Computed example of a mutant assay.
Amino acid sequence: MNGLYALKPWYADKLSGVRAALARREVSPDTLTLAGVVCAAGAALTLAIVPSGYAAPLVALLLAARLAFANLDGALARATGRTTRRGALLNELGDRAADLVVLAGFLPLAPLWLVATAGLAATLPSWVSLAGVAAGADRLNGGPVGKTERCALVVVAAASGWTVPVLAVLAAGSALTAALRLGRLWRELDGGAR
């Protein structure tokens, strides 16, 4: 069920040099979280104002940077002993904000109800995972349409102009991912005391 999330260890390894350089410069992990949201906003703006096809390279670059920052913030915090509860909160808020900001780039390109539905659906997998953590389970990530797949779908829309079909796939896939995570958690937590 991990989807592209299965590549995270490989990707983290590729970013290890960047992480070490950031640690040497004493960059705050929170700065990286915010940088990820800024990259998401740049991708959204590009998506909204640059014609499809032309938008794809910049959207892809900005979303790759968004994913790199999402990987680096927690890794840097752990590597430098700067993990905090506030940092964890900022990380979660930053990830949700980045997801929603990127999808806001579709507002001039697709019906409002579809953009809103995709935005809600994109947050569902994380809600389920965080609810599982609150119940004592390990954090679940990945899935058929996790964060990385959502970014890839946005790049497809930027390249093709197929905003409505891509948003429909993103919404349905995110809902499926949330349902799969919920099913796994339900089985895992079955019989546990409240």
Rank of each mutant, 00 (worst) to 15 (best):
N91H: 12
N91K: 14
N91F: 11
N91E: 12
E92P: 01
E92G: 11
E92W: 09
E92S: 15
E92H: 14
L93C: 15
L93Y: 12
G94C: 07
G94M: 09
D95L: 10
D95Q: 12
D95F: 10
D95N: 09
R96M: 15
R96C: 12
A97Q: 06
A97N: 01
A97E: 00
A97Y: 04
A98I: 03
A98Q: 02
A98L: 04
D99C: 08
D99T: 08
D99K: 05
D99V: 08
L100E: 02
L100T: 11
V101M: 05
V101Q: 03
V101P: 03
V101C: 05
V101E: 02
V102D: 05
V102C: 09
V102P: 01
L103R: 10
L103W: 00
L103D: 03
L103N: 05
A104S: 14
A104M: 13
A104T: 11
A104W: 11
G105A: 06
G105D: 00
G105F: 01
G105V: 05
G105Y: 00
F106L: 09
F106N: 07
F106P: 02
F106A: 11
F106S: 07
L107P: 02
L107N: 06
L107H: 02
P108V: 13
P108C: 13
P108D: 12
P108I: 13
L109R: 07
L109Y: 02
L109Q: 05
L109F: 06
L109V: 04
A110D: 07
A110W: 02
A110L: 05
P111E: 15
P111V: 09
P111R: 07
P111I: 09
L112R: 14
L112G: 13
W113S: 14
W113K: 06
L114D: 10
L114W: 02
L114T: 07
L114M: 11
L114C: 10
L114N: 08
V115H: 04
V115A: 13
V115K: 00
V115W: 01
V115T: 13
V115M: 03
V115D: 01
A116F: 07
A116Q: 02
A116W: 01
T117E: 01
A118L: 09
A118W: 02
A118E: 00
G119Y: 15
G119D: 00
G119N: 03
G119E: 05
L120N: 09
L120Q: 11
A121F: 01
